[in-house]
């Protein structure tokens, strides 16, 4: 494409799942105990979207990546310390809750508003990326609603691969049942792509990228617009963490077959 793509990635923080997570009833609804003291990581689904965006931008000269993130400013700032060295982007920060208990519709509205306010965004070159799901929000509808509010009708969810064909069309692989993919071809942007895991590993830390990003990250955080999400009309009947069951054994030199058989036995017995 002449001039490259304009790729907007939506994604924010989730509490580091390796920490002690405990749901509690807070004054404004469900929350995690001591959530603000927990280290945050970029939502893994959104991280895949960001890596894919950066890779695509690298392959198509003139492309640019914006990262639109809604979260507590202090936590976004913390996140940037680990993410800004990964890939080049320009941050658009929104200061508000990143709780998994927020209403997806309201989140989508805030994100769409922020995207619309990006100066000189060319919709004909726009690829709107995000996570298909979220580690803190399993509804999988936020990106769809962001796209709808922006009037983007070509939407693909659970995407594992996006390739640009020689005629400029977009070929996408969406996950369907049974480990298969549905192949779609879309003529041109704008398009919404809700990424599954994609194909790319986490990029290594690149200090040059980090220093470049930080020149725009800090100003973006400083001018982050405050977003107040209302909790009106939203009730939660119960909140639980996924149950973990862990039985540690140390076994050496087992063959793959033996491990597989044991897993099968374990699944059958459950």
């Amino acid at each position: 494409m002449n001039g490259g793509y304009q790729i907007v990635v939506c994604g924010s923080i989730v509490p580091d799942p390796l920490q002690t997570l405990e749901p509690v009833a807070g004054p404004t609804g469900p929350a995690l105990r001591n959530e603000m003291m927990l280290p945050a990581v970029l939502d893994p689904w959104a991280a895949h979207a960001l890596y894919e965006a950066a890779n695509l931008a690298k392959q198509h000269s003139g492309s640019k990546v914006w990262w639109v993130a809604l979260g507590p400013k202090a936590k976004l700032q913390q996140l940037m310390m680990s993410m800004a060295q990964k890939v080049p982007f320009e941050l658009v920060a929104l200061d508000g809750t990143a709780s998994g208990f927020s209403d997806s519709w309201e989140v989508a509205e805030a994100l769409a508003g922020a995207i619309e306010s990006i100066p000189e965004l060319d919709r004909d070159r726009l690829l709107l990326f995000g996570g298909w799901e979220s580690a803190s929000r399993g509804t999988g509808v936020t990106m769809q609603m962001v796209g709808e509010r922006l009037g983007i009708t070509d939407q693909f969810q659970g995407v594992d691969e996006l390739t640009i064909e020689s005629d400029g069309s977009l070929r996408l692989l969406e996950r369907v049942e049974g480990g298969h993919h549905q192949v779609s071809v879309c003529g041109s942007p704008p398009v919404v792509v809700g990424w599954a895991t994609g194909r790319l590993p986490e990029p290594p830390n690149n200090p040059q990228v980090g220093m470049l990003n930080m020149r725009t990250v800090m100003p973006a955080l400083q001018r982050a617009k405050l977003v107040q999400l209302s909790t009106e009309g939203l009730t939660f009947h119960s909140v639980d963490l996924p149950e973990q069951r862990r039985e540690t054994r140390i076994v050496r030199d087992s063959s793959a077959d033996e491990i597989a058989l044991e897993l099968v036995d374990w699944i059958k017995s459950d």
């Binding site: 202090a74 310390m81 680990s82 980090g210 220093m211 400083q222």
Partner: peptide, 12 residues
């Protein structure tokens, strides 16, 4: 970090 005068790179 809020001062914007120094950058900290964990995981490096």
């Amino acid at each position: 970090m809020s001062t914007g005068t120094a950058v900290i790179w964990p995981g490096t």
